[in-house]
Amino acid sequence: MSTTDSEGAPSQGAGRYFEAAVPIIAFGVTGVGILFWSAGYPVDFQYVSIGCTISSFILAYLAWIRPRKDIVALSTPIYGIVFLATPIEAAAGAVLQLLYAAGLTVLLFRLKRRFSAGMGRPAALSSDEPLGKYQARILAEMPAVSPALALAAARIFIRFSEGEYDESGRLASTVPEVAAGTAPHLLAQAFAIISFQAGRMGEKESVPGEYPVFSAEEQHLLFFPLPDSTDKERAYSLQLDNALVLLYVVALRCTETEIQVSLDRLCLFARRLVGE
């Protein structure tokens, strides 16, 4: 029986029971001890701390089986053993153990949140969402995008998202496939738009008289239809938005693991770009 999911995070099966056991055992045993003590039974809180000790070992186990180790959670059994080995007066013991149980619970949430690979990672594009539909459309239209071009698109998109506009513009202007004329025209135009607009990004926004644009024949392949109004600023920024969205869906074809992880993280940004 596996206690971990494919990412190594114990979020399914027995893993869930272990996670629930941490606060339940820690608070439960201490709570029972307090109940007996308030009912007048002689309770030695040194041994009541066994609940916290067991919980701390479970927490340490949960931390151990994760791909990323949390040293704080891993070291909690040390304190659990200290509690078990040290005689303590009832009131102080009860308070200390309740605080420790609360601490273990906080550490469990921290472990789940910060030390689970894939946690907080946005889901891959679904075919139901607008960006997923657009990706399918582009895949059908440009089935032969080379891995090198996808990699170039990914690097440009990542640098742009990081606010490294100069670097992104420089990369977009030096794509070898574009220079060799082997890149699809739509993509070459997207690189040209990003190269131009990223280079101007540091300046106070103003719309230049002339700038690279997608041609009217390619409009059906763009995410946003281009406005035919006289709103120059909107028309200018939509060219960039279309170019970025196009680069993102092309970049998703990149097979390098490191790039894929970065693109996964940028899924939220891409969704934001398309107004989701």
């Binding site: 990004m201 540091g202 940028l266 934001r272």
Partner: peptide, 17 residues
């Protein structure tokens, strides 16, 4: 760097805008 609001994302944490 002057940026449009929509372009601000998690990758820009720490950047001065």
């Amino acid at each position: 760097k002057t940026v449009r609001v929509r372009l601000i994302n998690e990758s820009m944490i720490g950047k001065i805008v």
